[in-house]
Amino acid sequence: MSDPKPYRAPGFRSFLAVMGLSLLLGLIMGLGSIFLQDTALGDAGAALVMASVGMVGIIAIVLLWWRRVDEAAREAHKWAWWWGGSPGMAVGGIGVMALINGDWADAWLAGFEPDALVALGVGFVLIVQILGYTLAWLWWWAVRR
């Protein structure tokens, strides 16, 4: 029986490959939306179809990455999701609540259409969540160096 192939942790090239695949997926989603919105699906249908395609694609990319990394790297991601992503979501949620309930931003928010307001709220929470996730991930590795 031959020895198993030596393990090589994903490096910068793998990271670039993941980013490239994600960009390609984004391009497919964008072009697909443009193409489909003129069909019977309409704007909403095209967005739904391409968002589904995007989700399947992202899951596939994440699975590829997950299979490449070792157990400590997986632990870092799980830890960061719980201790960074969850508080980030809470902080983002508080920010949205402050925007909704405070009158200090009313003049600014009045300039948005309702669907843009929803996207703004979701986007804001997502950005804070990703920020929390990234900080927690960096912290996990920093204390284990």
Partner: peptide, 14 residues
């Protein structure tokens, strides 16, 4: 790390 099939960073953390 190579023998164990993990990254060098994991060995360091261990």
């Amino acid at each position: 790390a190579e023998q164990l099939g993990v990254s060098r960073q994991t060995i360091n953390a261990l």
